[in-house]
């Protein structure tokens, strides 16, 4: 952590960490503690009166069927997005790992959606599925599916899941392929000499050995689906129709900024914070466990 050879105490190190620490205090820790505090208050929309109510906001949330629905919806959304994005990336990476000629070209063509902003991704997908104009809506209509994500909650959910997974494939692909390529070649060769064909090698050698990466990606993807998809949902459905795509983050934003229910929104923030902390802890525990080759 600290170098064996280092500089002694002076004012300098304080000056060096100051910018980071000040920003952390002012824009992270103070607001987070405010959120904690506000979560214990009930305040009217105009800020005229406030009342300290202990955990009433949380009890309200716990008793609130709508909040529970949001929770379930978020879980479903995250698992589906992570599942689709990881499974497709894994398949693509496994295939790309086999290919020697042209591997870089494939990689290049697969990774760029990482750079597309969530809102922009949302705009692309909402355009393709626009109920009156969209090319897919049109195609679906021909085969007899009536597509209107502005009316059908299921269709809206499908659309945000697709858009969110689409954007995340690139990231997962890069990590999977890096993990596969860091497996020593001689292991694969030893397995081939042992008589394992490509499919068997994938399931008995490659897949078990990239488990740490898979777990890491699982956490990253869940975090992504929880937080970074805000832009996609905001662009595609605004949480609708009838809250069918309102996930936790969106609800915090909606209740706080649009509905001006400060205490409720703050209580939700605190719950989200706990989720992030849990995910971060899991992530850091797993990164410690790396596979040791020989």
């Amino acid at each position: 952590m600290l170098k064996r050879v280092h500089f002694g105490t002076s004012i300098l190190p304080f000056l060096l960490v100051a910018p980071q620490i000040i920003i952390t205090l002012v824009f992270f820790i103070w607001p987070a503690s405010q959120a904690l505090y506000q979560s214990l208050l009930i305040e009217d929309a105009f800020g005229l009166s406030r009342e300290f109510v202990w955990f009433e906001n949380f009890i309200d949330l716990a008793g609130n069927g709508l909040y529970f629905d949001t929770f379930r919806r978020t879980a479903f959304f995250s698992v589906t997005v992570a599942g689709i994005a990881m499974a497709s990336a894994l398949v693509l990476a496994a295939m790309a790992d086999r290919i020697i000629k042209g591997a870089l070209t494939y990689r290049t063509l697969l990774i760029w959606p990482y750079a597309v902003a969530p809102v922009v991704a949302g705009a692309l997908w909402v355009f393709m599925f626009d109920p009156t104009l969209g090319i897919f809506a049109y195609a679906l209509n021909i085969i007899g599916v009536d597509w209107n994500h502005k009316l059908s909650g299921d269709q809206a959910m499908a659309l945000v899941v697709m858009a969110s997974a689409w954007k995340q494939i690139a990231y997962n692909f890069l990590f999977f392929i890096a993990a596969m390529q860091s497996i020593p070649k001689s292991l694969i060769e030893a397995a081939a000499i042992d008589g394992a064909g490509p499919v068997k090698r994938f399931f008995t050698i490659i897949f078990p050995l990239i488990t740490p990466t898979t777990f890491f990606l699982l956490v990253v993807n869940v975090v992504y689906a929880f937080f970074d998809t805000f832009g996609i949902i905001h662009a595609v459905t605004q949480g609708g129709p009838a809250k069918a795509t309102e996930i936790l983050v969106y609800k915090v934003f909606n209740d706080g900024f649009v509905g001006l229910d400060l205490g409720g929104s703050a209580a939700q923030s605190v719950i989200l914070m706990i989720i992030v902390i849990a995910l971060t802890v899991i992530q850091f525990r797993y990164i410690e466990k790396k596979v040791e080759y020989s």
């Binding site: 170098k3 280092h6 620490i21 987070a32 405010q34 959120a35 900024f257 929104s265 703050a266 989200l272």
Partner: peptide
Amino acid sequence: YFKFPFRMAFFWMIFLTLMLPVEVRILP
């Protein structure tokens, strides 16, 4: 590279930002 008081406290404070994305502290 420096040994100074509260070094680890600062470190953990920075670490904490990892757990506080904008989304969980929007309003404040």
